[in-house]
Amino acid sequence: MTAKIAYDDVEVGTELPAQTFTVTRDTLVRYAGASGDFNPIHWNERFAKAVGLPDVIAHGMFTMAEAIRVVTDWTGDPGAVVEYGVRFTKPVVVPDDDKGATVEVAGKVAEKLDGNTVRVDLVATSGGQKVLGMARAVVRLA
């Protein structure tokens, strides 16, 4: 594991570069196929509405995959992630248009731990609402 960020160079409060991700219906179809999660709430508007959702929603696991990129792009080595957990607090609603939805992800070093590891707290929002809660990763730095 060779992270490009050194433990000694970060402190509590260090901000990671924020990123914005776009999610369209096309994204969801691709993710369904790659992940094997074919739940129709992620691609079938008729079904999603019948179960009380406003529209098709993104896979929570897709949003989780995007959010950790703030950490893996920062360290360079995705294998440096030691722990990663999130709570799915609000669905990301994906309209049937070319724009789709956007998810903004910010991250900050929240704690320096043993073994050159740090805890990064992530904040993911879509349409101004937090879509992940308790989004935390522990990552090993150089």
Binding site: G60, V81, V82, E83, Y84, V86, R87
Partner: peptide, 16 residues
Amino acid sequence: FSRVVHGDQKFAYTRP
């Protein structure tokens, strides 16, 4: 299962 939603997810890695 028709009433199930994914609430939380966590991973703890020994290696990728």
